[in-house]
Simulated scan of single mutants.
Amino acid sequence: MKIISMIPARYSASRFPGKLMQDLGGKPVIVRTYEATIATQLFDEVYVVTDSEIIFKEIEKIGGKVMMSQKEHDCGSDRIAEAVEFMDIDIVINVQGDEPFTDKESLSKLIDVFKDDYDKNIDLASLMVHITDSEEIENPNTVKVIVDRENFALYFSRSPIPYPRDKNAGVKYFKHKGVYAFRKEAILDFYRLPMLPLEASEKIECIRYLEYGKRIKMVETDVLGVEIDTPEDLERAKREWK
Rank of each mutant, 00 (worst) to 15 (best):
I122Y: 05
A36I: 07
E150D: 07
H130N: 12
P231T: 13
A181G: 08
Y212V: 14
A237D: 02
T50N: 11
I38F: 11
S126P: 03
S77F: 12
E105L: 04
E202Q: 07
K115N: 08
I91L: 09
K65A: 07
D98Q: 06
R15D: 12
E240T: 12
D229V: 03
I59C: 03
A181S: 10
E58C: 02
K214W: 07
E58P: 00
M128G: 05
D88T: 10
F174M: 08
Y173T: 00
A181E: 02
T230M: 08
I38Q: 13
V46H: 03
M1A: 14
A125W: 00
T50F: 09
I228S: 11
A9V: 09
L188R: 12
E232F: 02
M128W: 04
C75R: 01
L127Q: 03
A81K: 03
D189E: 15
K144D: 05
D233N: 15
W241C: 15
K104D: 02
V145F: 00
L20Y: 05
I216T: 14
E235N: 06
D117K: 00
N139E: 05
P140Q: 12
D116R: 13
P194M: 13
W241Q: 15
K167S: 11
R236Q: 14
K120F: 00
D88I: 10
K104H: 10
G26A: 11
I30S: 02
C75W: 08
S5A: 15
T142M: 09
G25I: 14
K214N: 06
I62E: 05
L124S: 00
Y191H: 14
K27I: 10
V31G: 01
I146R: 02
F174I: 08
N141D: 05
D23Q: 10
M128A: 10
E135L: 05
V179D: 01
E35T: 11
W241K: 14
E99W: 04
V145M: 04
I204V: 13
I187S: 01
Y118F: 08
D117G: 03
D116H: 10
K71G: 01
G76A: 15
L196I: 09
V66S: 00
K104E: 13
Y209F: 08
I111K: 00
L24C: 09
N141Y: 04
Q96S: 08
G26R: 10
R10V: 08
L154P: 04
P140I: 10
I93C: 08
E202W: 06
K109E: 06
I207H: 07
I62K: 09
D112W: 06
P162G: 13
R32C: 15
R149Y: 07
D229L: 05
I62P: 04
I55G: 01
D116L: 09
D233P: 12
I216W: 11
E211P: 13
F190P: 01
I91K: 00
D222K: 06
S108Y: 05
G64S: 14
R149N: 08
K175I: 04
L224D: 08
V145G: 03
D222P: 05
V95P: 02
K177A: 02
K71H: 05
D133V: 01
S77L: 13
L234R: 04
I137N: 00
E240Y: 10
R10Y: 15
A125E: 02
G213D: 06
E138R: 10
D74E: 15
